[in-house]
């Protein structure tokens, strides 16, 4: 992980905390929906928090291939590189 992606990982962990009711430890390969057992709407609500924090759009169709924390970090990096537009 680069310094930037570590920072994004840390921020994502912070934003995910309210949804992680069982306080499961977040690792790069943690699957956000299945490992934390959070429903589809909660995942989308989490993504909305991410969008607002980074001022980017993450279209829902992108999420189909986004499972782990590392996947999510990559999506944020890509969207930031694109200037945040959808």
């Amino acid at each position: 992980m680069t310094a930037d992606s570590k920072e994004i990982f840390a921020k994502l962990s912070e934003l995910l905390a309210p949804f992680n009711s069982k306080n499961i430890e977040l690792k790069p390969d943690t699957e956000i929906s299945t490992d934390l057992n959070i429903d589809s709407v909660s995942v989308m609500d989490f993504v909305m928090e991410v969008e607002d924090h980074f001022d980017i759009d993450i279209p829902l169709n992108v999420l189909a291939d986004t499972h782990t924390m590392t996947d999510m970090v990559k999506v944020v990096e890509q969207r930031l590189a694109q200037g945040g537009s959808s």
């Binding site: 759009d57 169709n61 537009s85 959808s86």
Partner: peptide, 24 residues
């Protein structure tokens, strides 16, 4: 539909406008 899907905050026209403004 296969379209790009952008979700905005419930009943929040300001939030929609912010997202529209980011879109080309």
């Amino acid at each position: 539909s296969g379209a790009n899907l952008v979700r905005f905050r419930h009943n929040n026209a300001t939030d929609l406008e912010k997202r529209l403004a980011r879109h080309d």
